[in-house]
Amino acid sequence: MIENTLANRLKKAREEVGFSQSKLARIVGVTPQAIQALEAGTSAGSKHLAAISGALGVEAVWLATGEGDLKRKPRRDISDPSEAQPVGNLHFLMGFDKEDPLDDGWSFPPTRIVFNADTIPIFVCQIVDDSRIPKKAKEEITKKITDWIYKSNVDDPDFVERITDTTRDKFFSISGDVPDDYIPRPHYLKGQGEAYAIYIIGNKTISPVNINKSIAFISPHKNPQHGDIVVIWHKTNTFIVSKFLYDSGDYIGLENQYLVNDSLNEEDPDKYFSMTDTTVLSKDQIRSVHCVGGVEFSAPRSPKIQQ
Score class of each variant (00 low, 15 high):
residue 206 I to T: 09
residue 224 P to Q: 14
residue 233 W to T: 04
residue 59 E to G: 09
residue 204 K to G: 11
residue 59 E to K: 06
residue 141 I to A: 01
residue 301 R to F: 11
residue 83 E to G: 07
residue 50 A to N: 15
residue 82 S to Y: 01
residue 151 K to V: 00
residue 126 Q to H: 07
residue 234 H to A: 10
residue 180 D to Q: 05
residue 266 E to Q: 12
residue 260 V to L: 06
residue 13 A to V: 05
residue 189 L to N: 09
residue 1 M to N: 11
residue 207 S to D: 07
residue 174 I to F: 12
residue 185 R to V: 04
residue 132 R to F: 11
residue 51 A to W: 03
residue 2 I to V: 14
residue 274 S to M: 12
residue 105 G to R: 10
residue 114 V to Y: 05
residue 18 G to C: 09
residue 120 I to A: 04
residue 111 T to Q: 10
residue 92 F to E: 01
residue 43 S to W: 07
residue 11 K to A: 03
residue 276 T to R: 12
residue 38 L to W: 05
residue 304 K to A: 04
residue 107 S to K: 04
residue 202 G to L: 08
residue 12 K to Y: 15
residue 240 I to E: 02
residue 300 P to L: 11
residue 132 R to P: 00
residue 124 V to F: 08
residue 86 P to Y: 00
residue 134 P to A: 15
residue 53 S to N: 07
residue 217 F to A: 09
residue 174 I to H: 03
residue 275 M to V: 03
residue 266 E to Y: 02
residue 259 L to H: 04
residue 72 R to L: 14
residue 97 D to L: 12
residue 7 A to E: 15
residue 297 F to M: 12
residue 13 A to I: 00
residue 164 T to V: 11
residue 95 G to W: 02
residue 298 S to G: 05
residue 220 P to C: 13
residue 154 V to T: 08
residue 299 A to W: 06
residue 58 V to L: 13
residue 72 R to N: 11
residue 278 T to Q: 10
residue 137 A to S: 15
residue 112 R to Y: 08
residue 79 S to R: 10
residue 253 G to Y: 06
residue 290 H to G: 01
residue 35 I to M: 03
residue 80 D to P: 06
residue 95 G to M: 03
residue 7 A to N: 12
residue 20 S to E: 07
residue 158 D to E: 15
residue 86 P to I: 01
residue 175 S to M: 15
residue 249 G to F: 00
residue 301 R to C: 09
residue 240 I to G: 03
residue 185 R to F: 08
residue 5 T to C: 09
residue 31 T to S: 15
residue 281 L to Q: 08
residue 64 A to I: 01
residue 251 Y to F: 14
residue 293 G to D: 07
residue 202 G to I: 04
residue 104 D to N: 13
residue 199 Y to A: 06
residue 163 I to P: 10
residue 48 H to C: 08
residue 162 R to N: 11
residue 79 S to L: 04
residue 305 I to C: 05
residue 269 P to Y: 03
residue 134 P to V: 12
residue 19 F to Q: 00
residue 85 Q to M: 11
residue 110 P to S: 03
residue 201 I to M: 10
residue 159 F to R: 01
residue 246 Y to S: 15
residue 228 D to K: 05
residue 149 I to M: 08
residue 9 R to A: 05
residue 90 L to P: 01
residue 184 P to K: 14
residue 20 S to K: 08
residue 194 E to H: 12
residue 3 E to T: 14
residue 276 T to A: 10
residue 10 L to K: 02
residue 273 F to N: 06
residue 197 A to T: 03
residue 75 R to E: 13
residue 159 F to T: 01
residue 183 I to V: 07
residue 197 A to G: 07
residue 22 S to Y: 10
residue 262 D to L: 08
residue 229 I to V: 15
residue 79 S to I: 00
residue 54 G to S: 11
residue 67 E to F: 11
residue 11 K to W: 04
residue 187 H to K: 13
residue 150 Y to E: 04
residue 261 N to I: 02
residue 300 P to Q: 11
residue 186 P to S: 11
residue 135 K to R: 12
residue 106 W to D: 00
residue 28 V to R: 04
residue 149 I to S: 01
residue 17 V to I: 14
residue 83 E to C: 04
residue 135 K to S: 15
residue 240 I to Q: 05
residue 134 P to M: 14
residue 256 N to P: 05
residue 204 K to A: 13
